[in-house]
Design a protein around this nucleic acid. Sequence first.
DNA 1: GAGTTTGAAACT
DNA 2: CAGTTTCAAACTC
Length: 779
Amino acid sequence: MELNTPNKNQIPATNPLSQFEDSPVFNYINNLSPIELVKSMHNGQAFNLPSFASPLSVFASPQLSSQSDARSFIRRYQFSEPSKPEFFQSKDENDTSKGVLEAAQLTGLSVEQSECFTPANSSKGVITKLPGEHMESAIEEPIALKYYCASPDDNIIMVPLKAIIEPEMVGDPNERYCSRESERYCSRESEKDLRKICRTGQNEDEAGCDWVALISDVADILTLEPSIDEESDEKQKLVDSGTISFISNVLQAPQDNSNDSKTPNYAGSSQQREIGEPGIQPVESGEQNEADQTPSVFPGTLPDKAVVNDAAAKVDIRGKSYQSSSKQNKIRRRCLVFEMGAHKKKLTFESSSSTLSQSDRMGANIEKHATPRTDKGKTLSALPGRGIGLHLNALTASSSGKAVKIETLASGKQEISQPPSPAAHMTSGSDPVSKSLALTTVETDFVPFDNKDKVMENAAKTLMVVTEDFGISSPKMKRQKMEFLGASSCKRCNCKRSKCLKLYCECFAAGLYCIEPCSCLECSNNPAHEETVLETRKQIESRNPLAFAPKVIRNSDSVSEFGEETNKTPASARHKRGCNCKKSSCLKKYCECFQGGVGCSSYCRCEGCKNTFGCKNGVEENDIKWEEPKTHENTSNLNLLDIIEKGEDHPDLIAPSKDSRSPVHPQIPFSGQLSGSSLCDVGPSTQIMCRPIQRFRTNFFYHLPKYEKHLQVIPEDETPEILNSNCLPTSGVKSVSPNSKRVSPPHHGFGPSTTWRRGRKLILRSVSPSTSLNPPSEQ
DNA sequence: GAGTTTGAAACT
DNA sequence: CAGTTTCAAACTC
């Protein structure tokens, strides 16, 4: 602590007072009318060198390390002004500083700002009122601003999240003492507060909203983080676990993390880099704490990540080789089709945020963050002719589903249950498992594509740990866990000869690049062969515009509100082309209809069909007792079918069938399991975006077969205008294949993104130039 | 995990 | 477009 004193003295000494006046802090203060007068009077005094030294030396924490000097200085510098008057009154500065404080106290905000620059305080100040340029930043980069704010030196100071979501906590006097100790205390408090918030947020819509926002923001940070990760893949993993840990920590009981300033975790290092102070500890320091990282995730890692982003950039500027760009390139891109990005994201978010419940909002938020980020998205979105679509679907969605499912199991109620609602799931605050799972699910959204896989695996592992911790270790559970693990990796192909460039390949068919978990040989379905992939895809689409379209379509007329039963009929959905099963009786996953959880239809040419999901001869499901598989011959009763399907004009608008039958269906292909491919299978190229949160929110689909899971509520009447404009005419295009099989209209390459409104899921689409708008010319 | 079965996709 | 081949997932043991 003694060492710090010289530094702080020296540093300010090198800075002319004029610099202080130009500093953001002053700008900010200037904006505070009460302060303005005082400031003009005492600039020099308030920031003269001696004033910095004394207080700090008194309160400096013994734990201070040289590495944190930079940060210390900044913070000191920030809070020295206000703190001095109250606690270090000395000299003539007193009057000035005090005056500042008093003036500041005239307004709550002023007080917060003027008082010690604790993270909480500062954060609030920043969020509430940002001076000049920072205000702009606030608009453009709210996330960043929430976690750090500019220091006088234009450096970034980490700001705990507490104030952001729970401003009232700022008032804690304890946090206003700006010694090192108190600072650390504040950090801990912030962490606690955040956890607290997370808990309380589950019960409070408003709080929940904030919480969601927080998580979303965190997601942003976390998502971005990998791109600037300077360390190796090993560290990448660390990050992944860290993200999970973060979520876990948020929900778990408060834990101490007193090493905020001392522990050179992400925060410390990044901050220091950011500040660019000598003695800054390299990132390596963060590694030393791999184990500690989890506990410190909150006060440190989170904000750090935010800082790191900037830091990395700045560091690069400074000539340090942190390889941020190369890291970005390292991120594997898996999607073949990409999200449109901001527009869609915004659209989704907005539409969902207005009327949705907390969970809805959460989903929306998460969704919002899940979509467009990652360099992958950036890179690929630029690809011409690519549709808009995010195909993490399977991964995220399925994993979510798994999470939910397992959670239910954890509760010991039923293996494949239908949680009341995602919200309920999230708000069942008393259940740690739920929390953990829920967050795990949510958290997956924060991760970039390939990281998602890793994260999901981590999440799955975490889930396993959690479930085991709670005594959930039955063989069945273990199996489910393993399934979950499998699902976490989304699609995995095992192609040997197709080079993963044919529809045989599930990854390719799903619009995904193959990833490590795949066991394919001579795989060309990777970013390295991007052109080949796209070209091949184009060829396939030219041959069959529906090749990448969802395999299961639903009749729009059956779409209804969630609560309605109108669309619970399997017959309301059908396989795009119908199956051609001969031996499986359409009772195995060989059958795409069965796999998709839909009944065989007149489109099918199956023999000995026993598909109990529906009747291709037009028998309404209502007439079917699903517990008793009903056998029916493949009678191509087109007339009846036409009647039944006259609403098929919206093949891709699928009601979320809160299908009650599927859950009890004796032959549900998935029996609660969500194969990693589930989503992708259905709509890969359909580009239906089933994000984790969506899955999470639509957990009632978990029991549904993979296809059906893809086809969730997309009420046409509620389809956003922007979407409607892109949607097929409601009149629908019924196309008939040469073999008398009706073909669903092409999806126009719309990469639907989904959102929720009034409890229903909307799929937002964007036009993909690559997909033909012409009626499908089914083979 | 190896082998078989199955049916979609691809090819002719 | 029907028939055949190829292919990889699903399934069985």
